[in-house]
């Protein structure tokens, strides 16, 4: 029983990531509809979308190579692996030691690398444009992400995900400007990485305004379903990563099974709030021009650097 517990947690967590991520997206969409005075299709609409896509046949471009067909699986697999690593409901996660936060970021990078290649595989102008832009955003987000990680790891003396969450759980509540800066920077990066407004618009299909959607334009059927699902998981994972790193309260400590239901409720509440925050941002802001994005990410870098500096200077 004692040995089974971590494995159980691991399985439960993977299940949560798979099942709950469409709900989070559905929640964001429903709330957004509400905020913009439209009627929503309900929180569970993403499930229906996925099911429809899985049932459909695939239409593949004539000159698509194996890279194109292989990409959805890699994207899905690496994202799901990331989901098995981030401690979401309990810090007692056996696979959490597989990758620390730096390796975790690299797991998302694999998915992005292949998506960008798939965008170029068919040989359309849109696909190449999407890949080029996606890689630009990603490359500028990376230093800010690292700085943010650096700041958090300064406070927790670790880059291991469960130890980072755990160390914040242990310490008493203090006012830490460094963590606040790191959090804001992380939020900006998460927006950019997930292609949300104001960096990219996940629901646009206007050719010249899209980044992520442009790369996956040629996908259909179960390929598209896998990619869509992976991007839902990515949003879920970035939200829960932010929540576990900066607000870990409520997460179950080591070998503490009784805390699990509570942790689950806490997670749901926190993610609902994150969703509301996303809606607030997306309703208030317009998508910015592509060449404003470097400044946006520059601001994220500045904030995370200020976090690092204020750790040394003020704490």
């Amino acid at each position: 029983m004692k040995n089974l517990y971590p494995i159980l947690i691991e399985a439960l967590q993977v299940l949560i990531v798979l099942v709950a991520s469409p709900v989070l997206v559905g929640w964001v969409r429903a709330l957004k509809c509400r905020a913009q005075g439209r009627r929503s299709a309900g929180v569970f609409q993403p499930y229906r979308d996925l099911r429809k896509l899985f049932m459909k046949d695939i239409v593949l471009a004539e000159n698509a190579s194996w890279v194109f067909r292989f990409t959805p699986y890699v994207v899905f697999g690496s994202t799901l692996l990331a989901g098995a690593i981030i401690p979401i409901i309990s810090v007692d996660l056996p696979l959490a030691a597989t990758a620390d936060i730096i390796a975790l970021v690299a797991l998302f990078a694999i998915a992005r690398f292949f998506t960008a290649l798939a965008g170029m595989d068919v040989g359309t102008a849109f696909g190449g444009m999407g890949s080029s832009r996606e890689m630009m955003v990603a490359s500028l987000a990376e230093p800010a992400m690292l700085m943010s990680v650096f700041t958090v790891s300064l406070a927790s003396h670790s880059t291991s995900l469960s130890f980072m969450a755990h160390s914040l759980l242990e310490t008493s509540v203090v006012l830490r400007p460094s963590l606040a800066f790191a959090l804001i920077a992380f939020a900006l990066i998460a927006i950019a990485e997930n292609g949300r407004i104001p960096v990219d618009n996940p629901s646009t299909h206007l050719e010249l305004t899209m980044i992520h959607e442009a790369m996956i334009l040629e996908y259909s059927g179960r390929h598209l379903a896998l990619i869509e699902w992976a991007s839902m998981m990515k949003l879920f994972l970035f939200s829960s990563l932010g929540v576990s790193l900066f607000f870990p309260w409520g997460i179950a400590g080591p070998s503490d099974p009784l805390m699990l239901p509570l942790a689950f409720v806490a997670l749901a509440c926190k993610l609902a709030l994150v969703g509301a925050a996303i809606v607030l941002i997306e309703t208030r802001l317009a998508k910015m021009r592509i060449f404003r994005v470097p400044e946006f990410l520059g601001a994220a870098f500045l904030l995370s650097t200020l976090g690092m500096l204020s750790f040394f200077m003020l704490e």
Partner: peptide, 19 residues
């Protein structure tokens, strides 16, 4: 502690003026 948070905010606003 409050003072250090405030000084961080002052620094942030100084950068805010720059950008």
């Amino acid at each position: 502690e409050i003072n250090s948070v405030l000084s961080a905010l002052i620094l942030l606003s100084a950068f805010g003026l720059l950008v």
